[in-house]
């Protein structure tokens, strides 16, 4: 049992499974292939169940903050089946294609949006040794992939042949690009402290020493702010801006196409929560409980925190948002990198 905790629950289970498969097939390549597929299935399962759980959670959190009860009809007193009812509704909705839209680009946009947000999950260390692809340029690759999410928004906005969608698409580009920069610089400090771009190393360093939220508080704040902007949630939901530009880039989508946007949104929400956990809150490290439990506790707390922010704060304006990014967050992040560098230098010199 202790050995299991030592090596991580997920890794142990995977090891046992691999041994059984090896016994069954006796072929290294086939076993690896099957293990990869199981991993992919697990990650997709995490994303889908996250979307289901989070739609319910968001409704409940929103309702509780707004002194309401939230879903309380479908599936008992607590409305547990509400997300499934939502799903059914979305699936049974008519697929409306606006007149004069660019059909191919329009249809591609929601699918392309889902790809980078799902791909990012490959690099998340869910538990000790439970990283799907623990590449040595993990952080770099992660940022590179997640910034691809800009394009589908622009595609959707452009192809919808709708004025609101067009404005939404334009806003997305401005917002996501300008928040990419401070986000990267806020992570740079951590990379400097760890000395590695590997995700598992970052967590391992925190598990051995101290959580980076204590060493890099400024970077943490910058990262949380930029993460809210990257996921297009209030106070930075200008891309959707329901009361201004209706629903922005996906104003014209309905039914399952819209559901894909929705899925990507919640996948992104979980992704940034996991990133915050991994980079600043020590990932799977924690006493007594298995690592995977700690990991999910922290990640879900971050999800709740983002929801809490969303249902409290009003929306900023586009010029205020951009000037916050370029005039405040970016210099702050750069200064943080500098200070970290000096700090690391002094530490080594001592």
């Amino acid at each position: 049992m202790n050995a299991m905790l030592e090596n991580g629950v997920v890794a142990t289970v995977a090891g046992v499974l691999r041994e059984y498969l090896m016994l069954l097939f006796g072929n290294q390549f086939l076993t690896d292939l099957i293990m990869k597929f199981i991993g992919i299935g697990a990650v997709i399962g995490v994303i889908l169940s996250a979307a289901i759980v989070f739609t319910y959670a968001e409704r409940k959190v929103c309702a509780f903050i707004q002194v309401r009860l939230g879903p309380n009809r479908v599936g008992g007193r607590f409305g547990l089946l509400q997300p499934f009812a939502d799903m059914l509704k979305l699936m049974s909705k008519e697929d409306i294609i606006p007149a004069g839209c660019d059909r191919v680009v329009w249809a591609l946009s929601p699918m392309l949006l889902f790809v980078p947000s799902a791909l990012a999950y490959a690099f998340f260390p869910f538990d000790k040794g439970a990283v799907f692809a623990d590449v040595n340029v993990g952080v770099f690759l992660l940022i590179a992939i997640s910034s691809q999410a800009v394009l589908p928004f622009l595609m959707g906005g452009y192809a919808s042949n709708s004025k609101y969608a067009m404005i939404g698409g334009m806003r997305t580009v401005a917002q996501m690009l300008s928040y990419e920069a401070p986000m990267v610089f806020s992570l740079l400090g951590i990379v400097m402290l760890t000395g590695s771009l590997k995700m598992s190393d970052i967590v391992a360093v925190q598990a051995d020493n101290v959580w980076f939220v204590l060493l890099q508080p400024v970077a943490f704040v910058i990262f949380v702010i930029t993460a809210t902007a990257e996921t297009n949630r209030t106070p930075f939901d200008l891309v959707e801006g329901e009361s201004e530009i209706v629903a922005g880039a996906f104003a014209e989508y309905s039914g399952m196409r819209w559901a894909l946007f929705f899925l990507a949104e919640y996948a992104n929400l979980l992704a940034v929560s996991i990133l915050t956990t991994t980079f600043f809150l020590g990932g799977w490290s924690g006493p007594v409980l298995p690592g995977v439990v700690w990991f999910w506790l922290k990640a879900l707390f971050m999800v709740f925190f983002f929801m809490w922010l969303r249902w409290t704060l009003p929306r900023t304006r586009i010029d205020q948002m951009l000037s916050l990014s370029w005039k405040v967050l970016l210099p702050l992040a750069l200064a943080n990198v500098m200070c970290t560098g000096i700090g690391v230098y002094i530490y080594r010199w001592l």
């Binding site: 903050i65 707004q66 002194v67 009361s243 409290t312 009003p314 929306r315």
Partner: peptide, 16 residues
């Protein structure tokens, strides 16, 4: 006004 600014919680409180 709060709702138009995106803070829909304010709207619920005033209506309550």
């Amino acid at each position: 006004l709060a709702n138009d600014l995106g803070a829909s919680t304010g709207m619920l409180y005033t209506f309550r």
